[in-house]
Design a protein around this nucleic acid. Structure first.
Lengths: 169, 169
DNA sequence: GTCTATATTCTGATAGAC
DNA sequence: GTCTATCAGAATATAGAC
């Protein structure tokens, strides 16, 4: 299977050079492993966003484009991570409150950044997330490793910015 | 598990009032069941698209909106079908040539309809598919059964049409 | 701290009674 | 045509040797 949902503890142990049973010295259950990966993924996301160029509002378009491209590349760098963090394909996995807090924090930071350059209300934001994750999903589904949908990111950002500018006037 | 990937033959048999073993009177393997569902799904898709109002080009915007809404509702009506037809979450499933031909036919029809009202080249089409499937995915992931992203479809269609009109001038 | 051995449960699939 | 009985393998997880 391609994707995170079909990875067994045997597979996972093999990738780290251990037998499946040895993983229980580090985690009490498979769900706990998912939870640690979930939390670590959002911590990576926050850490990576922090290295982006700070906002000085000089060029809204360039800033939005850079932010979306960074997010796109983060999502397409690791399919298992993307599925765990942003899709819902892992069987019966529910993040712990601690890990969920990290995810909420990451989401709030992203919303805050996007509010500066573009999105005003929840509907605006929902449209942005749909377009950007739609591009990511198509890239994974139909051209993994390529740039067919990544190349459309500038067009999509312009489209979204134009739509919102037109909407305010 | 939510979704198609985790459904066993026992689950599937129970939903149709049979034991898992009895399914083998109708299908030689689980993959064959997936294949039949895949083909039937695309046949439903083609049949439903055929009932839509024919294109007379009188109102491009209304026509595009109706088409996208119909597609959106088709995708959000049945999660298992959506995952099987448009996502890639089923373990090791590869459609048979016969079923794949139905899918290719359905795709060609959709492209043909969209070409009339909007998309001109492959990149245009890719942008449409990314936006529409992005809306569907967000609806399933974050508001299943609701209309939070469905309500954004008119905005998205206008946005795409405007972007393409502006691009041609 | 990692291993072997094992328990338990679930999976897809087959054989054969009726 | 659907059932019961059963198989072989893989899944998560535990116990205990070293």
């Amino acid at each position: 299977m391609h994707g995170l949902a079909g990875i067994s503890l045997r597979d996972l142990g093999q990738q780290v050079g251990l037998r499946a049973q040895s993983l229980y010295s580090y985690f009490p259950s498979k769900q706990a492993i998912y939870d640690a990966m979930f939390r670590q993924g959002y911590e990576q996301f926050i850490a990576e966003a922090a290295t982006d160029t700070p906002s000085d509002n000089s060029d809204v378009r360039a800033e939005a484009l850079a932010g979306v491209l960074a997010f796109f590349d983060f999502c397409t760098a690791d399919q298992a991570r993307y599925q765990l963090l942003f899709q819902r394909v892992v069987p019966d996995f529910e993040p712990s409150p601690t890990s969920m807090a990290v995810a909420v924090d990451a989401y709030a930071r992203t919303v805050g950044r996007l509010a500066v350059v573009a999105a005003a209300d929840q509907a605006d934001l929902d449209l942005w997330t749909a377009v950007v994750t739609g591009l990511v999903d198509q890239q994974w589904s139909n051209d993994p490793g390529g740039t067919r949908w990544r190349d459309l990111v500038p067009r999509a950002v312009d489209m979204l910015l134009d739509e919102q500018r037109r909407r305010r006037s």
